[in-house]
């Protein structure tokens, strides 16, 4: 599907199949990719994390109001924001496990709390970021932009992570919670780690976003909640847990981003973007449901 979209895009515009275009598209997709990485881990566990919306908003407003001009201070706050993301996620995991609550509802609540906190810190879009911070997006090495290198780093992380004890246990718990428990996988540990990682990636997404926008926004996070799930599902991840991987999610995120580019190139109303995204999501869900059914049929 990505190939088809790329083909269509390529015929409509010059210079699509160049490194410049890769750099540009990756920069456009990277915030979503980072947010969707966390979401992918949660979906593999069989959960969902809506609170990433609040975390992204909170991350951008904290960056835009606290970084100041001193590089040391900015780095300290950046680390702090990532830590906050991981902590809030860990709290989600604790609530879900100990109180046996639905992930959907717990993270809906923490999303709301985080969004409100972001509003208190910075009621409207604004603030500023150090000039050096915003140069991140323009940095490049060997012709590849910092965003592409970030993507490569992310893929390396994934190929490491999925072979760790934690990665295997998360997927096992998503496949069958009871069997995983009886096999000695600790549900509390898994949930805390899963949602902490999701919060951490949401914080990274927020930091990346500020290098692109140069401002904080207390409402921008909600634009990433459902697209992060959509990117994962388009990439073949099952909402029932256990099935799929990050590569699929990244392709899904590129597809969603390319739709935006296409709508722009075709010079149609920008309202077409969510419509086309929705149609593609439907096709993906249908394909995934067929795959699920045939997989189930093969299990005697």
């Amino acid at each position: 599907m990505l190939a088809a979209l790329l083909g269509l895009y390529g015929t409509l515009r010059e210079g699509v199949f160049t490194i410049d275009e890769l750099n540009l598209d990756t920069a456009a997709a990277m915030t979503l990719i980072l947010a969707a990485t966390g979401q992918t881990i949660v979906l593999l566990r069989g959960g969902i994390d809506l609170s990433i919306g609040g975390m992204i908003s909170l991350g951008t407003v904290l960056a835009a109001t606290r970084f100041g001009t001193d590089p040391g201070q900015a780095v300290a706050w950046a680390i702090g924001i990532v830590a906050i993301g991981a902590l809030v996620g860990a709290l989600n995991g604790l609530l879900i496990t100990i109180l046996r609550l639905q992930p959907f509802l717990v993270t809906l609540a923490t999303w709301s709390i985080l969004s409100g906190t972001a509003m208190i810190i910075l009621p409207t879009d604004g603030g500023s970021l150090p000039a050096g911070w915003m140069r991140f997006g323009f940095a490049s090495w060997l012709g590849l932009s910092s965003s592409v290198w970030l993507l490569i780093l992310l893929l390396a992380f994934w190929f490491w992570f999925k072979r760790t004890r934690l990665g295997i246990s998360i997927r096992a718990t998503g496949s069958n919670e009871r069997s995983a428990l009886l096999s000695g996988v600790s549900p509390l540990g898994i949930n805390v780690a899963t949602y902490a990682l999701s919060g951490l990636f949401a914080a990274l997404a927020a930091l990346y976003l500020t290098t692109q926008t140069g401002a904080g926004s207390p409402t921008i996070g909600k634009d990433y909640i459902l697209p992060s799930v959509a990117a994962a599902v388009i990439g073949g991840i099952s909402l029932f847990g256990g099935r799929g991987g990050l590569v699929g999610t990244i392709i899904g995120a590129y597809i969603l981003t390319l739709i935006g580019n296409l709508v722009f190139v075709l010079e149609v109303s920008s309202y077409w973007q969510p419509i086309v995204s929705g149609i593609i999501l439907l096709i993906a869900v249908l394909a995934s449901s067929i795959a699920e059914k045939s997989a189930r049929r093969s299990l005697t």
């Binding site: 295997i168 096992a172 069958n176 069997s179 009886l182 000695g184 256990g242 099935r243």
Partner: peptide, 17 residues
Amino acid sequence: NHGLLLSRSVRENLTLS
């Protein structure tokens, strides 16, 4: 439902613990 991960491989099931 309690002993196996039906949708995972024999290898993964054997070594999960």
